[in-house]
């Protein structure tokens, strides 16, 4: 029997653990933001203290150096389009793999695991040659296709594992009602999969938003380049303007935070009791 004081001790313990967890996690972000307001000299002599004044100039410098004006939108377009395609195609594929018993189902599922195992740098030269042969080098497609291709495995992987755990008879009543395959997917399976969809949207958005090496070699036109390339401009041959880089990284974090915060509630939105006719 749980007594009141026992419960109190337990809750205190939980909060102590959570607060420690929060401190360790918040520290690097706070550090980055605080240092983004320091001058170069201040940062050189004091890396841990508070800034003497808020040196907003870093943000203006960062905006220009990283070419935010253009690169930001390029990143948004490429990331968002790739995420939409990944999730749409991925969810559809996951649905058929998870909910239908056909001969190739397991094989195809395992086939997607391959994509998880390849170090990205190994595909750099082949990818470049492939894009060049297809004639889509220096176009947004040359980033969107690889982003979709390399995010599909984890998307399908997570969605299949999620969809498989639905009770088997979910679709049966719908079929009795005469619903088509695609309608079952759209009206029943997809809504139930929302927490997992939110997860894969967040993950693939982060991957696309931060992706660097493909963007480095596949896009040459400054009008189409993405933000991670711009964020490298702070590094010179031997000197790096760290404070401006922190300002740039802080700004680059905003879209990811927005995506996360928008989807966060989906992550914990449990199924309403009625959704499952167990």
């Amino acid at each position: 029997m749980e007594t009141y004081s026992n419960r109190k001790i337990k809750m205190t313990l939980i909060y102590v653990v959570l607060i420690l967890f929060a401190i360790v996690n918040a520290y690097p972000i706070l550090w980055m933001i605080l240092n983004s307001f320091k001058t170069t000299k201040e940062y050189a002599v004091d890396k841990l203290g508070l800034p003497h004044s808020l040196h907003f100039q870093n943000y203006i410098d960062a905006w220009h150096t990283a070419n935010f004006g253009e690169y930001f939108w390029n990143s948004i377009v490429v990331s968002v389009v790739a995420v939409i395609i990944t999730v749409l195609f991925g969810a559809l594929a996951a649905y058929f793999i998870a909910r239908f018993d056909f001969k190739m189902s397991k094989t195809i599922y395992n086939f997607f695991i391959f994509g998880l195992l390849v170090p990205i740098h190994a595909t750099l030269v082949p990818m470049f040659i492939l894009m060049s042969k297809l004639g889509i080098l220096n176009t947004r497609l040359s980033l969107i296709f690889p982003y979709v291709a390399f995010n599909l495995p984890i998307t399908i992987f997570l969605l299949v594992s999620f969809m498989r755990s639905f009770p088997k008879d979910i679709e049966e009543s719908a079929i009795m009602d005469g619903a088509g395959i695609l309608r079952i997917f759209w009206a029943i399976i997809l809504p139930m999969t929302r927490p997992a969809i939110a997860t894969v949207v967040i993950l693939s958005f982060i991957n696309n938003w931060n992706e660097f090496v493909f963007a480095l070699v596949l896009i040459n036109n400054p009008k189409l380049q993405t933000l991670p390339l711009g964020l490298q401009n702070f590094a010179g041959d031997h000197v790096t303007n760290y404070v401006a880089q922190f300002a740039g990284l802080t700004m680059a974090l905003v879209p990811i935070l927005i995506v996360y915060l928008l989807l966060e509630k989906e992550l914990v939105k449990g199924m309403t009791a009625g959704a499952v006719k167990g």
Binding site: V81, L137, T139
Partner: peptide
């Protein structure tokens, strides 16, 4: 659902058109 799929594909090609060599 199908039109969304289609839209995605169209979107990609439209976007790619603006970045020619």
């Amino acid at each position: 659902s199908w039109s969304l799929l289609l839209l995605g594909v169209v979107l990609v090609f439209a976007l790619s058109a603006c970045g020619s060599n």
